[in-house]
Design a protein around this nucleic acid. Structure first.
Length: 472
DNA sequence: ATGTTC
């Protein structure tokens, strides 16, 4: 494979063999070797062979190896020209995403109450594998309402305020959700988990705005230097995982009937307009809405803890999903086309003035939330003009060590001590889980943010630093 | 990511 530099933050993989489009990798010299080292670029090449793919197979600066598609990968297929949809292009954690809330308190005022706040959050935020959530649903009928209405159903049931929905991507519900394609096992796994973090890289952090790069946009987002924030990173738990598992199986079995040949079976897919394609997209949207309701419930738990322990409110800045496939219209070679845009570990990043932006954010552009790791910064960015990756951006730091390697290198108890000595409170779910998510297991999020801005994918608005971590 | 192997 040959990488050709196209610009200071952009590399190109020329089409070869069965690639239908080039690969485009957004990276710096410092990030690129890590991407090459972990097989992610082979996956960029594999994705470029998918039926109906247009423009390029893209890799964001935080790209790393994933199931079939790389995490940090973006691929769009032409719906009306045989384009496919692939569950591997969304990932197992459908609608995994980030929600940021701005507190009505600054870090200096919170400091004396921080211990009590973290204790309360640690006691009230459900987390870890399995276990229960904050909101027990009564059965399939209630679940179906949640799967169609997403965060809106949570608000309707008293878990939040109407304004929250104005600050959610898609107003909290992805269109086209079809619960009839969500199997009973997925529903059963989901009934007890609404309002829970899960495990892995999921977290709820108390953060502070350390630096503002763009005061005007920060003000539109409701952020200022010194302000306390809450960042929530989680997804669709067992329900989304089961939806992915079920539909990968269906598509794997239908590949032959569509005459699709793949370089990797994990790219299992079907035409968007086919029965398995439509079934998956309906189920995927439903699972996406579960993920959005999940974050809505966790935000309510954070609001309760802040009201009690910090005497402060929390306003939603934004809620974004970074694991989705969405039907969008984009110009391809000057012609508007309906595309199925897979964003797997990639965030929607609409530029200022885009007609799909929610009211109040039309002039600023779409908020891009880039969480780091528990010991490092997170970034608030905003969509920029000139983004040819279907208005997509990075979604986080990106792993460099496998979980196994992290466990070899790091002890959870030691890590907690290190973080506490740096003034970062930690409320872990398990020592093992903590060690697997050690900051050293990830790329440098500052470098990822610089590359994201340098590549023209999004602009920096603010840098947030962690004060306390509730770890999944 | 995941009732971390139906």
């Amino acid at each position: 494979m040959t990488l050709v530099r196209e610009g200071p933050f952009r590399f190109r993989i020329e089409p070869q063999d069965r690639m239908r489009v080039p690969g485009v990798v957004f990276a710096t010299e410092e990030l690129l070797p890590q991407a090459v080292g972990d097989k992610a670029l082979e996956q960029v090449v594999n994705v470029a062979t998918l039926p109906g793919i247009v423009r390029a197979s893209y890799a964001m600066p935080d790209v790393h190896w994933g199931y079939g598609f790389p995490i940090g990968g973006v691929a769009a297929t032409d719906v009306d020209a045989g384009g496919v949809v692939s569950p591997g292009g969304v990932g197992f954690d459908i609608s995994c995403g980030v929600r940021l809330l701005a507190a009505g308190i600054d870090r200096t005022s919170l400091a004396p109450r921080m211990r009590a706040l973290m204790d309360l959050l640690g006691d009230t935020v459900p987390r870890g594998t399995g276990r229960g959530g904050l909101w027990k649903l009564s059965g399939r009928a209630q679940m179906e309402k949640l799967l169609v209405e997403g965060a809106g159903y949570a608000v309707e049931c008293g878990h939040g305020v109407a304004r929250d929905l104005e600050r959610c991507e898609d107003r909290g519900a992805l269109e086209g959700a079809d619960p009839s394609h969500v199997g009973q096992r997925a529903v059963e796994r989901g009934l007890q988990q609404v309002g829970s973090l899960g495990s892995g890289n999921h977290f709820l952090e108390v953060q502070a705005v350390e630096q503002v790069y763009d005061a005007e946009t920060a003000a539109v987002f409701g952020l200022h230097t010194g302000q306390v924030c809450v960042m929530i990173h989680c997804g669709s738990r067992g329900l989304g995982h089961q939806v992915c598992t079920d539909h990968v199986r269906v598509m794997d079995q239908s590949l032959r009937s569509f005459g699709i040949q793949l370089p990797d079976r994990q790219l299992a897919c079907a035409p968007v307009v086919s029965s398995p394609g439509r079934g998956y997209l309906g189920a995927m949207a439903a699972a996406a809405n579960y993920g959005r309701a999940n974050r809505q419930l966790l935000a309510e738990a954070a609001r309760h803890a802040f009201a009690v322990a910090a005497k402060a409110g929390l306003d939603l800045v934004y809620d974004v999903s970074h694991n989705t496939a969405k039907i969008e219209t984009h110009d391809v070679d000057g012609v508007p086309r309906r595309l199925c845009v897979h964003r797997k570990g990639a965030t929607l990043a609409l530029p200022p003035g885009h007609p799909a932006l929610p009211e109040g954010l039309v002039e600023s552009g779409h908020p891009v939330l880039v969480p780091g790791t528990m010991g490092t910064a997170s970034y608030v960015m905003v969509g920029a003009d000139g983004n040819d990756a279907f208005w997509s951006s990075a979604h986080g730091a990106g792993r460099v060590w496998s979980r196994h390697e992290a466990l070899r290198q790091v002890r959870g108890e030691q890590l907690r001590g290190d973080l506490e000595s740096r003034g970062i409170s930690v409320r872990p779910s398990s020592w093992r889980g903590l060690a697997e998510e050690a900051p050293d297991a990830y790329k440098d999020v500052d470098a990822v943010a610089r590359a994201t801005e340098g590549a023209g994918l999004a602009r920096m608005v603010a840098r947030l630093v962690p004060l306390g971590v509730v770890k999944g």
